[in-house]
Design a protein around this nucleic acid. Structure first.
Lengths: 235, 235
DNA sequence: CGTCACCTTGACTGTAATCAAACATGGTGG
DNA sequence: CCACCATGTTTGATTACAGTCAAGGTGACG
């Protein structure tokens, strides 16, 4: 499945936020990907950068036996694909129906002859942001417990979605698990435990829509598991 | 302990390899740090970049209860501190007596007015290398077993030390463990298992000097644990 | 209405952590 | 030179956290 684009049209309008990569030199095109479809694969040539207009994307690596580590979730407004070198180091696919804007990477940083310093600095800032996220995630994956991981995940999503009243997660339990280095069952148990503590609750009949009732207690869980046998039926 | 420099002298000679950050604009000074001393702390202002001439450095984050995740080891020739923003995101300290060359970060990439494109691109390449390393480490921390982690660590060191006949690791078991998200006991057991398989052996009376006898079998261990009860006395 | 994908929950297992002890090493000073 | 101690490593016994296996529930969609 190499062609997984369901629609494409060209535009020269700049993308939204979060910086001025909307360079005079870049031409952005809109594309749509359906849920589950692959946007690019690991080791493929990296010719484009992407900005999400609608929907969400996961980027991940796979081991030969199917174990998967999701490196990041990309939400509306996020730019991704810019940190790659000649070839993609991750696979990216849409976790819901997703609309992106695409620009040629070459238009952002060409060869050595690139002379647009402000664009170059913006690119570096984006790469640095990715690096900072990855560094924080190393600590989470290597040294935090299951409950801490799930709590930290919820806080990250809450922050990135701008602390909404009601948080509609675009990803399922399996994706959360592969982001946190856990199994989906463990994620589910941790969420149930937080719900039993009244730190959050589910809204509607889909379990992906969550209300955070007590962000500060959630933040406590994200840094110290309390070792209070959180997965037990009681407590 | 803010001042932990034991000697400092100024030089204008360029540093060794691995790229041309030896800019005309940068002035490098030599400093020495004794084993265990801190080079910079997390959240401190990041004013300098460092290149290791001799010795080794670990960079890490700490949780409030003392859990530690080492993000990277830096070996002779490596440049570090360049990927930071205004403040350091890691603590760095010397794991053996270490000599570094230091340059003002501002001399490498000043404000928006920086006009030296080749230096700018070299900086971006270094940051991208750090990002790639961190991304690979996410997969290792999140989805690989203890034996796979230790095998991968040995292969990484082997590669970075240019596949020496005899590999003298600068770091102890505790540091390896904190790099791999394990305990030092588990690291020790994994090394013992690899030694029992004759994949490696220890040289001399310090257990930090290792000879790799079979890099291809070690590489197998790094990607599939074989689930052969590697920690058992038999086999 | 039946199937499928997703989620929760329970029972049990297993990998790595924890606790503990023994041994080696290297430096210090008697 | 050697006793002594601090540090680092190995190994064993046991525990515990999260994984695995399994069953059941719920909603979406054809």
């Amino acid at each position: 499945m190499r062609v997984r684009v369901s629609a494409g049209k060209t535009t020269t309008l700049p993308p939204i936020q979060p910086n001025e990569l909307a360079s005079q030199k870049a031409v952005w095109s809109e594309f749509k990907y359906r849920v589950g479809s692959e946007i690019f694969g690991e080791a493929e040539p990296a010719d484009y950068v992407y900005q999400i207009r609608q929907g969400s994307v996961r980027t991940y690596k796979l081991l030969s036996d199917g174990r998967r580590q999701i490196g990041a979730f990309h939400l509306p407004g996020d730019i991704f694909g810019i940190e790659e070198c000649e070839f993609h180091r991750f696979t990216a696919d849409a976790i819901v129906n997703t609309t992106v804007w695409i620009a040629k990477r070459r238009s952002l940083f060409g060869g050595l002859g690139d002379s647009d310093i402000s664009v170059t600095n913006n690119v570096r800032d984006l790469i640095t942001k990715s690096l900072e996220h990855a560094e924080n995630h190393l600590l989470l994956l290597g040294r935090q417990t299951a409950l801490e991981k799930v709590a930290a995940f919820l806080l990250e999503m809450d922050r990135r979605l701008d602390q909404p009243e009601v948080m509609a997660l675009p990803m399922g339990r399996r994706d959360i698990a592969d982001y946190l280095g856990l199994t989906l069952e463990t994620v589910s148990r941790a969420l149930s435990a937080l719900r039993k503590e009244s730190i959050l609750s589910f809204v509607g009949q889909t379990q992906r829509v969550i209300v955070l009732h007590d962000r500060s207690r959630l933040a406590q869980r994200a840094t110290s598991s309390f070792h209070s046998k959180w997965w037990c039926i009681e407590n």
